[in-house]
Design a binder for these strands. Structure first.
Length: 818
RNA sequence: GCGGACAUGGCGGAAUUGGCAGACGCACUAGAUUUAGGAUCUAGCGGGAAACCGUGGGGGUUCAAGUCCCUUUGUCCGCACCA
């Protein structure tokens, strides 16, 4: 049949994917950086399962945004890659015997294919795969730079241990006492591990937050996580010993109320100060604390425990003796691991003192009659505090420290909750730590020219808590680069978050085999202009990546302060039952099934239209059917338009034409604004309005075919970012040259948006009574006159006086009568 | 426990930031078309017979409140003995 054209389907998808690839349409132009735009989605982990709805939602719609930007003339850099190291592949290997490398590479192949079927603008020339030696060579190189700079160090510390994953975890990876990955309760272990000194950047990480175009919620999470706290360190001497320790407090104003001090049970000082008489109970208590799980220890409802050490400290101002206790409500890792206890003005100390019969001394009174029943934890007026009596807490917390400072017993101090990032992992599938231990030379970094330290293939994965690499003789045994003697490699691998902390720097220069990235080049390409990914990374990836950027800047490898200028989090698509999608619930949506049935553009458009992007929401099969209908509606429209091209028409711009043109320009205006802001649902709604208006106009007997053609041309452009294959197909059908994505994005004409006459609401005393048409050129006075003359107004005016008239141009008039 | 966000038809969700609540879509109803089904096209669609009433509940500010303030309930999130 002549002129027969197949309805939009995956065949159309394939046709255009092929054409895009052959024409290299989405190839990034390295020579034209004036309008470069780096658009990035958080790269994905190549899991065994296929691309899921979440990937589509993230990648597909960010791609739509990028496509609009491209049509607006930006030179869009839109790379894609894989965060390919990690536990799932290793756990899979333990279960099935399939090597992580083999399964990962196979998964990557599948996902690449699926990503291509999505029809996104990814430039695959810049692909990055973190498990490739060409990549992790540079991950290791960065580790060595951090080591040289003193930002990577080894220490023995009580660290988080996941008994199920059989590895240590960073603080950020412990969620409510459980493992971020598997939820297993985390325990503490004393181990010597590698840390990155992220705390060195705590203040800057905080300071740069306000100017970032990030969701406020995310900034808040980082602010809380960094946890800056202004206070003071105050020195206490141990009685009859040449020992002292410092406490951190935010309430130096309550110093005179100190009746005892408490050390964390893990504090090293405990051994030195505990008297013989109390050794037994202190040791017993410390043993008991070790057994308490982290979850229990963090519980606020748990009754406070602790023991007296037999030792006394000297109050730095009064010289009084105060007992030194140990208790597990004091955390070893925060502040100095010691606190001064002021039971009168701290709820925890109050509870503790009450339980153990320690003194409670009031030193703060409430200001003007506030209820200051103990424990009174608010600021107030000092009392029982010698020369500080009568001044406010606010003044005293500085004044008291100043006094101590003169005597060398204290100073103002800022403390952060943020801890250094523990990066060692006792697992196989990660980047090996490029460090060698030599009996003679100690810790020896692998020389840079010997990188990468390749991950050996033949390794036993018995998950027994020992690093698999430690059991690989040919890997672990090496020679010392310094002395040539026998030495051992570090048997741990790096946290995969290390790999993902710099991948955005590698993308633009992914083939560089001389350096991790060229400084001049990435200074031009970065920072990332738009970064889109899940909110779950707020305190992990997004914090680590910022730290890496700042550290690399300070080491002279790049010249910007922040990696991601603008950040968007996509919401979560739930199952049709409103529950989180999971295999066990059986509510998962498999994109492939829908794409086979409807084509990838319809799947993408439904994702755009069915949800508020940052909210997400429950999946609906009806919703995707509606999208199919909409696309069919447009398809028929274009077919009809082309078929009727040569039929007679008009050229005038009458009322109907003006109305169509208004909807057209309104759509252009708002699709542009909404897409820019990731409000894809309303953007699609505006194109639907436009289609409705075109149908309405097309039903008229006399048509301005020029206007109709121009309007449909704009419609296709507006749809192109969301339905790229379909738009190309329609574009071609209309006889336009390849590609629609080289066509300029339409710009709206403000004057087309002005109607001759507007309908406004008429209110009497704030209540809408009726609607009235007024010329849009009418001023307030004229609108008032027209309204008051209207016959319908008379009922509301009868026997009343007009007190006030408010006119909101183009919207309403409110007449206040009495 | 502390802090934050949100709450709008039967459903998904809009609302120029104080100015016609419910855009757009789903579902539903009616009509047209079709041999029939599906599809398609057109129209209607918060409640109420109406005056009017309606944005979780109660109160307030204002000519005007989904939007601002106070209070209360519920959901989600973040932090959680951080001194």
């Amino acid at each position: 049949m002549e002129g027969y054209r197949m309805k939009y389907s995956t065949q159309v998808d394939k046709k255009w994917q092929k054409k895009w690839e052959e024409s290299q349409l989405y190839r990034f132009d390295r020579d034209n950086l004036d309008k470069k735009l780096y658009c990035l989605e958080m790269f994905s982990y190549p899991s065994g399962a296929k691309l899921h709805v979440g990937h589509w939602y993230n990648f597909g719609l960010t791609d739509s945004w990028a496509r609009m930007k491209r049509m607006q003339g930006y030179n869009v850099f839109h790379p894609q890659g894989f965060d390919a190291f990690g536990l799932p592949a290793e756990n899979y290997a333990i279960k099935t015997g399939i090597h992580p490398k083999d399964s990962t590479l196979k998964n990557i192949e599948t996902m690449e294919r699926q990503l291509k079927e999505m029809g996104a603008t990814f430039d695959w020339d810049y692909e990055v795969v973190t498990c490739a030696p060409e990549y992790y060579k540079w991950t290791q190189w960065i580790f060595l730079q951090l080591y040289k700079k003193g930002l990577a160090y080894r220490k023995n510390a009580p660290v988080n241990w996941c008994p199920s994953c059989k590895t240590v975890l960073a603080n950020e990876q412990v969620v409510e006492g459980g493992c971020e990955r598997c939820g297993t309760e985390v325990t503490k272990k004393n181990l010597t591990q590698w840390f990155f000194k992220i705390t060195e950047y705590a203040q800057e990480l905080l300071d740069c937050l306000p100017k970032l175009d990030w969701p406020e919620k995310t900034k808040k999470i980082q602010t809380n996580w960094i946890g800056r706290s202004e206070g003071a360190e105050i020195e206490f001497k141990v009685e009859n010993k040449d020992l002292s320790f410092r406490v951190f407090t935010t309430r130096a104003d309550t110093l005179y109320g100190v009746t005892y001090v408490v050390l964390a049970p893990e504090n090293e000082l405990v051994d030195q100060i505990t008297t013989d008489e109390y050794k037994g109970q202190v040791e017993a208590y410390r043993e008991q604390v070790k057994k308490v799980s982290e979850i229990d220890r963090l519980s606020t409802v748990r009754e406070k425990t602790g023991v007296f050490t037999g030792a006394y400290a000297i109050h730095p101002l009064t010289g009084q003796k105060v007992q030194i206790w140990i208790a597990d409500y004091v955390l070893a890792g925060y502040g100095t691991g010691c606190v001064m206890a002021v039971p009168a003005h701290d709820e925890r100390d109050y509870e503790f003192a009450t339980k153990f019969g320690l003194d409670i001394v009031r030193v703060i009174k409430g200001k003007d009659g506030v209820d200051d029943t103990l424990p009174f934890t608010e600021y107030g007026i000092l009392t029982g505090s010698q020369e500080f009596d009568g001044i406010t807490s606010e003044e005293a917390r500085v004044a008291i420290v100043k006094k101590l400072e003169k005597e060398g017993k204290g100073e103002l101090k800022v403390t952060y909750r943020l801890r250094d990032w523990l990066v060692s992992r006792q697992r196989y599938w990660g980047a090996p730590i490029p460090i060698i231990y030599c009996e003679k030379c100690g810790i020896v970094p692998v020389p840079e020219d010997q990188l990468p330290v390749e991950l050996p293939y033949n390794v036993k994965f018995t998950p027994d808590g020992e690093s698999p690499l430690a059991k690989c003789e040919e890997y672990i045994n090496t020679t010392c680069p310094c002395c040539g003697g026998p030495a051992k490699r570090d048997s741990d691998t790096l946290d995969t978050f290390v790999c993902s902390s710099w991948y955005f720097l590698r993308y633009p220069d992914n083939k560089n085999d001389k350096e991790a990235f060229n400084r001049e080049w990435i200074n031009k390409m970065l920072p990332v202009d738009k970064y889109v990914g899940g909110a779950e990374h707020a305190a992990m990836h997004l914090l680590y990546a910022r730290f890496f950027t700042k550290a690399l800047r300070d080491m002279g490898y790049l010249d910007f302060d922040e990696p991601f200028l603008s950040l968007v989090h996509q919401g979560t698509i739930l199952g049709a039952d409103g529950q989180k999608m999971s295999k066990s619930r059986g509510n998962t949506v498999l994109p492939d099934e829908y794409i086979q049935k409807y084509g990838s553009d319809i799947f993408r458009m439904y994702l755009a239209f069915g949800f508020a992007y940052v909210e997400g929401g429950p999946w609906s099969d009806d919703g995707i059917k509606a999208m199919d209908r909409f696309v069919g509606r447009v398809e028929r429209l274009v077919e009809k338009l082309v078929a009727e091209r040569n039929e007679p028409g008009i050229t005038e711009m009458g009322a109907e034409e003006k109305e169509l043109n208004l909807v057209r320009h309104n759509a252009i205006k708002n699709v542009t604004i909404d897409t820019e802001q990731f409000q894809f649902n309303t953007a699609i709604a505006r194109t639907m309005e436009l289609v409705n208006a075109i149908y309405k106009y097309d039903a008229l007997p006399q048509k301005n075919r020029g206007l109709l053609e121009d309007t449909v041309t704009d419609l296709l452009k507006l749809m192109a970012p969301f339905a790229p294959h379909f738009a190309e197909e329609m574009w071609e059908l209309m006889g336009k040259p390849f590609s629609i994505f080289n066509a300029p994005w339409p710009v709206h004409d403000e004057s087309a948006l002005v109607r001759d006459e507007v309908e406004i609401a008429v209110q009497f005393n704030g209540q809408i009574k009726f609607k009235i048409n007024v010329p849009s050129s009418a001023d307030n006075k004229e609108i008032e006159e027209i309204t008051l003359k209207d016959s319908r107004s008379q009922t509301y005016l009868a026997g009343k006086n007009v007190v006030k008239v408010i006119v909101v141009k183009g919207r309403l008039i409110n007449i206040v009568v009495k």
